[in-house]
Write a protein that binds this DNA or RNA. Structure first.
Lengths: 203, 203
DNA sequence: GCAGGATTTGCAGAACATGCAATAATCGGC
DNA sequence: GCCGATTATTGCATGTTCTGCAAATCCTGC
């Protein structure tokens, strides 16, 4: 295994995945999502069509491919804060997600494209929601760890799901209100949704 | 137009839709979802394969097709209760959704099948989440009406999304814990999630 | 009944998706 | 550096999905 914690194999794999994804978005922007074929995407990404299907089950999944994990640093901090009342954990979690988003400009650009696509193509929306859901599971696991509960426990599950719902709601509005090329940030929008959520709790 | 409020055309259309849906679930239970072809479904439902695609874009959508609207009576009551603090509206809404579920046994049976399918087939999960999301929009419109806010306003949107998240979380657990053929009700599960949600807000 | 519109259907063809087996690349230990 | 084992890529064959189009059929309202 090479010096870094991750072998060449894994790195290349991650890279190919990313390349297929960005190729999909680029081509969709250029020609319209449903004029784009798997063949075009594969060739743009420099792999065979058959390989495309080793990475994604379909175009929609390739378009919405996003973050699988929270970044380790802030997460460790979050977990270390230890057990607390559910409401507090929720508050900390929304804060964590917000910082995650604030610190990752490429992710935000990607998100804007994906939401824009999702508005016009039901299949993309479905794939995006599935992606959020999957991400929610990993978030729930982190929350469970902090709370000293088993993974799969309903409390962390619900906390994660509610937090992500608020985040998604903010991103949704952001993607609708802001034009594609503006150098805007979704952070204020998401903050707004998150605050609304906490207001909801307090009334 | 015939005596009832709805023409023959509309009724038949709704009926065909329903028939394709139940045929899909039945065949999926019998043969496994991915062994089922559109041709099988169509023939089981008594339509041509081409007609299948007039109703649904794909197998997944046919499998998860569910309620599009809240029932009129309870909804009118909900709306008539008039403006209130967001937290109260949320509470009323979760109550409404719960009663909706409690009063509709066929829907529950359907839900169990759909969730079970979704557990094994990512594409079905994606379609189901999209279905929930779409339903969320109509719920949000109802909430907006009650609160005297424009449709699309972020407050009703978030309230609807959060409520449905809790409901979904309960259904999720129910479908995992209860075997397929038990004559159980998801209501206690959903109640549990809803109560948890309100606890979350209160802490 | 009849004109107008909606629905169903068949057909043709492109694109999607999967299993399988051959080839090529990487890995870890020596 | 080399080698056996593992993993990834690719081409091929094949059945399925999905769409556009035009013909035929069926409701609807008058």
């Amino acid at each position: 295994m090479s010096p870094s914690g991750e072998g060449l194999r894994e790195r290349r794999r991650r890279q190919t995945r990313q390349e297929i994804h960005t190729a999909t978005l680029r081509l969709a922007r250029e020609h319209g999502f449903d004029k784009v074929t798997i063949e075009m995407i594969s060739s743009e990404a420099g792999v065979s069509p058959r390989t495309f299907f080793n990475y994604f089950p379909n175009k929609e999944a390739a378009a919405v491919f996003g973050p699988q994990d929270l970044s380790p640093g802030p997460t460790a901090e979050f977990v270390a804060a230890g057990p607390a009342r559910p409401g507090e954990v929720l508050r900390d979690l929304t804060g964590l997600l917000l910082r995650e988003l604030a610190g990752n400009p490429p992710l935000r650009r990607d998100m804007h494209d994906v939401f824009a696509l999702a508005h016009e193509h039901p299949g993309v929306l479905a794939a995006m929601l599935a992606q959020f859901d999957a991400f929610g599971e990993t978030v729930a696991a982190t929350v469970a760890e902090r709370m000293g509960r088993r993974p799969g426990d309903e409390v962390p599950n619900l906390i994660a799901a509610v937090a992500l719902t608020a985040v998604r709601s903010g991103l949704e509005r952001w993607s609708r209100d802001e034009p594609a090329d503006s150098e805007d940030s979704p952070v204020p929008y998401v903050e707004r949704s998150v605050n609304l959520l906490h207001t909801l709790l307090a009334s």
